[in-house]
Structures are given as C-alpha cells and as structure tokens.
Design a protein around this nucleic acid. Structure first.
Lengths: 221, 221
DNA sequence: ATTGAAAAGCGAAATATTGCACAATATTGC
DNA sequence: GCAATATTGTGCAATATTTCGCTTTTCAAT
C-alpha cells in the first residue's frame, strides 16, 4: 500500500518471475539477465526490466540481477514469507483436484478447510483437509479467520454462497464458476473460466495468424 | 480471417457474452440492452457496444439487441455450430476433473481422447473418454486429426511432451503446467496457471484498495 | 588503469484498451 | 402522427501497457 502503485499487468507477472527465480536458485544459478529471464517466461526483456524498476533499482548495469536478492525481495512482496490459509468451497471434481494441487510447496498457500453440501463428504478429511458442512461455512470462516476462498460450486448456487462468503468477511474469491458473481467493492474476485479460456483459444486459432513476435522468434531459431 | 481484425481484449470477452446470451434465451428473453448485459457480465456497457460494433451493426437504436440474432451470429463466430474435438494429455487429478467438466454442454467442445503414462489408466475408458498410452500420442492425434490439446502433465515432462504435440501437428495448447512452454509460431498457447492466479489475488488484496469502478457500483446499491 | 562488452534503467514514442458523452435512430404510448 | 423515451454506435479523450533506443554503469580481460 505504501509503495508506489504497480500496474496491474506487472502485478500479474510477479508470481511468474518468482517461480522461475526459485527454479534458478535451486539449480544453483546466482545471477540472471533480463534477456535470459525473457526467454524462460516469454515476456519481453524490456518489460521485465520495467517491471523490476517499479520496485527500485534491483539489478546492476552490465551485470544483471542477483537471483538471491530478487527472491528475497519478491518473497516479501508476494507474501511468500508467511503461510496463507485459504478455504475451498465446493468439493466436487474440480475441488478435489485442487486439494491435491500442491499450492503449498511452490507458493506457501494452504487449503486449510473445505465446505460441501454433500453429507458423504462433509465431516470427513480429504487429502488432509477437513471438510465441513455448508451450513457451518460462515461460522467456520470467521472462526478460522480465513480471508480467501476458492469457489468451485455449481453455478446455480454461486451467488447465494458468495453472499454467505461476504457475510463471513471474506476479502478475495477465486471464482471457478462461469457466473460473474456480485460482491461489494472491498471484495476482490479473480475469475478462472475454463470453458471461456478454451473458447478463446479456438477463436484465436481460427481468426488470428501467428503473432509477429513469435514469427520473429521463429526466424531466430 | 477475412473479417477486420478484432482486438484481443474483445475476443476474450466473446465467449462470456455468448454464454450469458444462451442463458437469456433459455429463460425466454428475446431482447437485451447493453446495460443489462453489462450488469450480468460486469463489463462496461460502452465496451460491450464497442465490442459488438466490430462485427457490424447488430442492435437497434432505442431498442437493444435481439437475443436470438446475437446468438446466431456469435455461434458461428465462435465455432459453436460444430463440435470441436480436443485431447487431454495427462490424466491425473486435474485431468480427471476436466474430463468431468462439462465443456460440451455449454460449448460444443468434446474431449475425445486422453493420454497418460500410467499403465493402470492407459487402455481404459474414463468418464466416457478412451485413454491411450503416451507412446501412442503422436500417432493417435494425427489419426484423429485433433488440433487442440489440454496439457495437464507434470512440469518436468511438459516441454518434451509439447515437442511431441508439435510433431503431431497440434495447433493450440491449453497449458495447465506452470512452465512457459516453447512452441513454433504457428502453435498458440493459452496458459492457465492456477497458483499464479491465486498469488495474484493475494497480491491485489495486500496492495490495492477497492477499485473505483466497484466503489461506484457500491454507491449505487 | 584502460578498454570493450554486457546489461540495467528510463524517457519517450507507439500501441492497445477503455469509457465518456452525445448525436442518431428506433420504439412506445397517447 | 407526435412527443417522450430508450438505447445504439462512435468520435474522442483518457488511461494502460508495451516497446524502442539510448545513456549509464558495471564487470572482466588485458
């Protein structure tokens, strides 16, 4: 909040940079240039330099960036230095998959509670995560002070459940339903719409040629 | 290809519009205004009008848009008038969830083949979809003339498998691995990076206030 | 030390996208 | 048929983002 405001487009790339940097560190690499980074994450090198520059001078001219320094810096910025608990609302097919998706290892994020209507699941522990009945959702979220949820419920139920989440004091929702849910201004929604994404891919295939940038990359090979 | 090129940002919203329009049609609604649409899909009404206008004058001033007309039009544009077959490469947790995700109903997209290394799965039928061993991938993709795949394999294997996909003549990849895979220019990649998405949400929560737009929407309530 | 090469940082231009504001036009009710 | 109302389509300004191109700095090798 205190820092100068970072463009959204930049913010979206930060986790990507962070992941690749940790990969480099694990491989024993100590320095990296914007050009190398660019090839790995497929973002123009000038964009990377600009992105980093919003945070001040992190690199050394003529040398590059120190991997460890960058990691230390981004770890803090991205809240990776402390565990973030999130809840999973709706433990169906996709929900189950997300329980097994290792957010924790790479990102210090843990799904610490799940909620589902299904009485066969509610009350059990799935992939190490306790699943509570939907009726207890608001209460449990408040008690566990969870501020972020992953919403993987049937579309029909999405808005009602969202209203409950808002009552429970949730601040952020990762919305896997195709419904664009309504929330008050202080709640942030990140939509992940799988069918739309696939449709968009198909549309691009049919209506756009190869990108110029890629065409150049091609030539270079 | 023939039409004037549509901005990417617009293209990404088309499936969203299409879905809501089919919802309206099912509910028996025959006309819709950009303002109504705007509230449902949370996109500014002027943006919606501009988006539609790229395709020519689809609405009537003082009246709005005819739902059926729009659907007919977008159905064609979005290739929803014919079934699109895609393959699923990597039938793990997430892969299984996607097999059960109903792309078909809403989008006329069918997962018609799956591939996996695991001999327990290869050769079986999962959720109605035949799963082939990885070794047969290139051959099967060619034979079935599949041009689009969903990639849900372990990160380590992603680039190697991608190279195989390219050999098989694939045109589009929906990439669920966190690796930014390298492909030739004529192959389009759509990245869906769940951990990154969640990280971004957390970053926004920590570093940005409520959006102005939302704040206004709030007032209006 | 000196020089050459590498690479960050950044002003500024280019490009992309959004949203305002209003004229143009259709519909509806009288 | 006319007035009142609704709502599109779009010029234009505002905003956001990317990219170029150059200056500055640093490192490494001689």
């Amino acid at each position: 909040m205190a820092e100068t405001i970072i463009p959204k487009a930049t913010a979206k790339r930060l986790p990507l940079y962070y992941r690749y940097l940790t990969f480099l560190a694990n491989a024993g690499t100590t320095k990296v240039s914007s050009t190398e980074l660019s090839e790995a994450v497929k973002v123009d090198s000038a964009t990377i330099r600009r992105d980093f520059s919003y945070f001040g001078a992190l690199g050394k001219r003529g040398y590059g960036y120190d991997v460890k320094d960058l990691i230390t810096f981004f770890k803090k910025i991205l809240n990776q230095d402390r565990l973030t608990n999130v809840a999973l609302v709706g433990v169906g097919n996709l929900g189950h998959a997300l329980l097994n998706y290792n957010f924790r290892q790479a990102n210090n994020i843990r799904i610490s509670a799940g909620f589902d209507l299904n009485p066969d699941i509610a009350g059990t522990i799935q992939s190490g995560v306790p699943i509570y009945p939907m009726a207890d959702m608001v209460e449990q979220l408040k008690e566990q002070q969870i501020e972020i949820v992953i919403l993987t419920v049937p579309t029909d139920a999405a808005q009602d459940i969202t209203d409950g989440l808002v009552k429970a004091g949730i601040k952020g929702i990762m919305n896997f339903t195709p419904l664009r849910i309504s929330v008050p201004s202080y709640v942030r929604v990140q939509n992940v719409d799988l069918a739309t994404e696939l449709q968009t891919l198909i549309y691009f295939l049919e209506h756009y040629g190869p990108t110029l940038k890629d065409a150049e990359a091609d030539k270079a090979q």
